[in-house]
């Protein structure tokens, strides 16, 4: 399949890697793989010790009001511009959308005045200078700027591995006009992996359907939440994909933590694994599955897949039983289930 994602300018530096609560708490390997890739691609970045949470989880669960979210976004933007790293790279599509939305609302004079009244207490101002300098990008977009360097960096070919993309709603649907490529057929993850020889899937039935998480919906309406997830799993099984690529930790949680649970409940099989795009790209570039990609925190058993792509010696039993045999899921009610 021909690469369709439009070219983006290369960014060698000035990137603030915006940490994500969900990434840190659930899959730290996503962040580690991203940093590892930035280093390989020669992209200079910093992590700011004073950066705070975007509030997305609280905001979308209706426990944090928008003015708070907006003020925190303004503060984080000020930090990025102050330290001369105004290109903010997001690991999580919700962080991306929340901060970008705040930039739009902060363009309204009354919103900006209200926010600056709060920021004044910490000696900061969100002004036109900050607004003009700040740029919100998903980390995949930053990597895409350097994609021409990828072919020579591939160390582990992924020939014959069929991948599909799960486009993150908060990246594709909140600001569809800003999407790198087509909002309704987002291909950047597959295009990034093209040099490794993957087989891309392109558009598929249910591609634009969301993951089912819906923030609090996962907890207050678990039936509907998991039914949506199941629909997507079914369609992907029909296609025979090997990996579903993610770009948002919340989607990743929904699919990875509940994949085996849904299969066990319904008796259906969904023979593929979930990985973040950065994790699979790092694996293709030769990264270690444990120390760089953090596969131990996944609920699914990734070992057969890692063996298949040569990231593990053939026939090796890699990890302790609890992590290696698969089902390690959190149920809708929050219970921890072990080894079904």
């Amino acid at each position: 399949m021909a690469v369709t994602t439009p070219h983006l300018p290369r960014r060698d530096g000035g990137v603030l890697l915006f940490r994500s609560c969900l990434v840190s708490a659930e899959y730290p390997g996503i962040e580690a793989a991203t940093k590892w890739l930035f280093d390989r691609l020669g992209i200079e970045y910093i992590i700011h010790p004073d950066q705070s949470c975007c509030t997305g989880l609280g905001y979308y669960s209706d426990v944090i009001p928008f003015p708070t979210t907006e003020a925190i976004a303004a503060r984080n933007a000020c930090l990025a511009v102050e330290c001369d790293h105004p290109t903010v790279g997001y690991l999580c599509s919700t962080c991306y959308a929340v901060n970008k939305k705040a930039q739009h609302t902060l363009a309204l004079p009354e919103e900006r005045a209200k926010t600056n009244a709060v920021l004044a207490r910490i000696g900061r101002t969100y002004d036109d200078r900050v607004d003009a300098a700040i740029r919100h990008l998903h980390v995949l977009e930053i990597m895409w700027g350097a994609h021409t360097s990828l072919p020579e960096l591939v160390r582990r070919r992924l020939d014959g591995i069929r991948v599909a993309t799960h486009p993150a709603c908060h990246y594709c649907k909140v600001f569809p006009d800003d999407v790198t490529g087509e909002a309704e057929n987002f291909m950047l993850p597959e295009d990034l992996l093209e040099p490794a020889g993957i087989t891309a899937t392109g558009y598929y039935n249910e591609k634009t359907t969301h993951c089912g998480a819906g923030f609090r919906q996962r907890f207050i309406n678990p039936g509907i939440s998991l039914a949506v997830t199941q629909q997507k799993l079914r369609r992907l099984s029909e296609l025979g994909v090997d990996v579903l690529l993610h770009m948002c930790p919340n989607c990743h949680v929904q699919f990875d933590r509940f994949h085996d649970l849904i299969a066990a409940r319904t008796g259906e099989t969904y023979p593929f694994v979930h990985l973040h795009t950065q994790q699979l790209l790092a694996l293709a570039l030769g990264a270690d599955p444990d120390t760089v990609c953090g596969v131990a925190t996944h609920s699914q058993d990734l070992e057969p897949f890692l063996e298949r792509i040569g990231a593990r010696p053939r026939g090796r039993v890699a990890l302790p039983v609890s992590a290696g045999t698969g089902v390690h899921a959190t149920t809708a009610s929050g219970e921890r289930q072990e080894g079904q």
Partner: peptide
């Protein structure tokens, strides 16, 4: 151009 609507596929 409306890929999800399937025309041409």
């Amino acid at each position: 151009r409306k890929i999800p609507l399937g025309w041409g596929r």
